[in-house]
Simulated scan of single mutants.
Amino acid sequence: MGTEGVDEYGIPVIADPVSSSAGKRRAIIEAARAEFLAEGYSAASMDSIASHAKVSKPTLYKHYGNKERLFLAVIGGTLKESYADLAAMPCTMADASDLALALRTFLTRWAHTLLGDDLLALRRLVIGEIDRFPQLGRLWYEITIDTLDRPLVGELEELHRRGLLRVPDPWRAVQQLVAMSVGSLQLIRTMRPDVKPDDQAIADNVAAAVETFLSHHRPT
Rank of each mutant, 00 (worst) to 15 (best):
G2Q: 05
E4A: 10
G5V: 02
E8D: 14
E8Q: 06
P12G: 13
A22K: 04
A22S: 14
R26V: 06
A27F: 07
I29L: 12
R33G: 10
F36K: 13
F36Y: 11
E39C: 03
Y41A: 05
Y41F: 01
Y41V: 07
Y41R: 12
S42E: 05
D47F: 09
A50L: 11
A50M: 05
H52R: 02
K54N: 03
Y61R: 05
H63C: 15
G65H: 04
G65M: 08
K67C: 02
K67Q: 05
K67W: 00
R69V: 07
I75T: 08
G76R: 01
L79V: 06
K80S: 12
Y83Q: 11
A84G: 15
D85E: 11
L86W: 07
A87R: 02
M89Q: 03
M89N: 10
C91V: 04
T92C: 03
A94R: 13
L103D: 09
R104H: 05
T105E: 10
F106A: 11
T108R: 07
R109S: 10
A111L: 03
T113N: 13
G116Q: 10
D117V: 09
L119S: 06
L120A: 06
R123V: 11
R123G: 10
R124F: 15
V126H: 00
E129F: 04
E129T: 01
F133D: 00
L136C: 00
L136K: 01
G137C: 11
W140E: 13
E142T: 06
I143A: 03
I145C: 09
T147K: 05
L152V: 11
V153G: 01
G154K: 02
G154R: 07
E155H: 04
E158K: 09
R161S: 12
V167A: 15
R172M: 15
Q176W: 12
V182L: 04
L185F: 15
L185G: 01
Q186F: 11
Q186I: 00
Q186M: 12
L187C: 04
R192Y: 14
R192M: 10
D194M: 01
V195I: 13
D198E: 13
I202R: 06
A207E: 03
A209L: 15
V210K: 09
V210Y: 08
E211L: 11
H216F: 07
R218P: 15
R218I: 15
P219N: 02
